[in-house]
Design a binder for these strands. Sequence first.
DNA 1: GTTCATAGTTAGGCAGCCTAACATTTTGGG
DNA 2: CCCAAAATGTTAGGCTGCCTAACTATGAAC
Lengths: 146, 146
Amino acid sequence: MNSSATDVRLLALAQAFRTTLRHAVYLSRSMDGDGELTTMQMSTLSMAAEEPLRVSRVAANLGIRVPSATEQIIKLEQAGLVSREADPTDSRAVLVQLTERGREAWEAASQRRNERVAALLDQLDDDDRAMLAAALPIIDRLNARG
Amino acid sequence: MNSSATDVRLLALAQAFRTTLRHAVYLSRSMDGDGELTTMQMSTLSMAAEEPLRVSRVAANLGIRVPSATEQIIKLEQAGLVSREADPTDSRAVLVQLTERGREAWEAASQRRNERVAALLDQLDDDDRAMLAAALPIIDRLNARG
DNA sequence: GTTCATAGTTAGGCAGCCTAACATTTTGGG
DNA sequence: CCCAAAATGTTAGGCTGCCTAACTATGAAC
């Protein structure tokens, strides 16, 4: 429990955080619309890049429902970026795997996006970059708890 | 221009930033779905709260096209949260204004969201909160340049 | 005062998400 | 065993939010 004084400060920080987050969402979206893979597709591919995974896990990680995940995965499959195979240990489940083309597409798109963001980061000075780097794990912790 | 060594570091930071941002988007979305106003609606109302503004400015600030803004504004109007009136200085333009109910709804929703985020921030220690607070303006600068 | 630019709306379409209903497979209690 | 319940996906249908293209109405310029 906090005193009401710190509460006011917490609320102010919360408001600032929300505003920054909202603008960051626009930034994030603006990096989507260049005719490549969407952020969601990138996320799916990067999950599958580590190891084959089930549709339900894709859905959970993306924060969407299973039917919506199926829909997206089928599109990725039609684009030749992932394959769907029955899980040998449980024939109800479907394992989503990266194809070779999927891996290439993911790596290329990821690289392009990193370069675009890096170009923005390049405009900051070293102190600001250090501060940003220090803040990211903190935001991650918030994300994990939200 | 940076050396290739710093370039590698920039790319790594870019990747970490993108990942954090992506998760933050989920967090942001998760705060939408409680049957209240969406983030976009909140943004629109908060703009109109300062002063009446044109549909085209709403669209620009939200990063969407004018017809999409019209659509959202009409919904807000039907919900009784904003009014649309012809601009007295230019009858082509439409001024979007908060209604009394709109102002109340916006303030209440904003307060609720701030409280929810504040509850998360409350779980951080003081150093982390200070670091987060320091990083927000930096992220804002990135957002502004993206 | 015609012509061009500006501000919005309307119409039609697409993508992504949802819930509900369904088929299939696994699990587990009787 | 065996049948009921749970788990995993898919299909079907609908909603929302965004888009472009086409249109109306007003303002500005020459």
